[in-house]
């Protein structure tokens, strides 16, 4: 077996009579950027939530770094090196940008049953947090309340929080959703700098982002993966064109 960082086998999840995830076998190699595309309602979000641990699958297994994590709750998965961004921006709006990232650092710096020393003066938290902010180009905005950042900056902040947990795998749920052209261009550039350095699973509608960034693409339709391959292969696949791009095969 080659070194798969993440591997799902026969992963299934139903809601009532809806098969949201249907026996999905999905593999992510160490170091690659693997995009998951599919039409609306294809079950992408349900799928990513099972990987991150927010939803428990009905059947099937998830292995991460050679370990079965199927039943681990989300926080434990995060500590094993799985980080995610959300489709709808999920940050601490009432904290400063620096606090947001420092909290992510803190989550991976041992337990937090420390009651006395002010965390905001703790250099072991703020120094790495500032470094990550620098990486996503937000260092000048460190002291701004997250709620007051522009939409694109908030999404960058979310990436920063994910990076601050020093993950082995980044799960990115539509990172350029709702962005203007300029903002999404900046986000794609940011993700491009991470490419190769971090293993990434990218769930995205924006084909520009997908074809720029992805090494491989999996196509999810009605809860099933109908094709996996390089961007060129996917572009040429008649089944994909029929099901997804809405063209006649």
């Amino acid at each position: 077996m080659t070194d798969f960082l993440l591997k799902t086998s026969h992963l299934s999840k139903t809601f009532g009579s809806l098969l949201a995830t249907d026996r999905v076998n999905f593999e992510v190699r160490e170091g690659e950027t693997h995009a998951v595309i599919g039409p609306n309602g294809a079950g992408k979000t349900t799928f990513i939530k099972q990987i991150s641990g927010e939803l428990r699958p009905d059947a099937g297994t998830i292995h991460f770094a050679g370990e079965d994590i199927t039943t681990l709750p989300a926080p434990r998965r995060s500590r094993k090196g799985l980080a995610r961004s959300f489709q709808i921006t999920s940050i601490y709006r009432d904290f400063s940008a620096l606090d947001n990232v420092a909290l992510a650092v803190q989550a991976h710096a041992g337990h937090s049953f420390r009651f006395w020393r002010p965390a905001r003066e703790d250099l072991s938290l703020t120094r790495p947090a500032r470094q990550v902010l620098e990486k996503v180009d937000l260092e000048k905005r460190a002291d701004i309340l997250a709620a007051n950042l522009a939409h694109g900056e908030q999404r960058q902040l979310e990436i920063a929080m994910a990076l601050a947990t020093q993950p082995r795998l980044l799960l990115l749920d539509e990172p350029v959703a709702g962005m203007g052209t300029e903002e999404s261009q900046r986000m794609i550039e940011l993700l491009a700098t991470l490419k190769g350095e971090k293993t990434m699973v990218l769930v995205e509608h924006d084909m520009d982002a997908v074809f720029t960034l992805a090494d491989r693409i999996s196509v999810l339709v009605y809860g099933r993966i109908i094709a996996t391959g390089t961007p060129a292969q996917i572009r040429a696949n008649p089944q994909v064109r029929a099901a997804y791009l809405g063209e006649d095969a």
């Binding site: 995610r84 601490y92 904290f95 009651f115 965390a119």
Partner: peptide, 26 residues
């Protein structure tokens, strides 16, 4: 002191955004 300690920040983080707090590992 408590509120501004590491403990206090986790507590406030969980209030502010529980899903995010779980996702970063708490």
């Amino acid at each position: 002191r408590l509120v501004n300690s590491r403990f206090g920040l986790v507590l406030q983080a969980a209030r502010s955004n529980e899903a995010r707090t779980r996702a970063i590992g708490f």
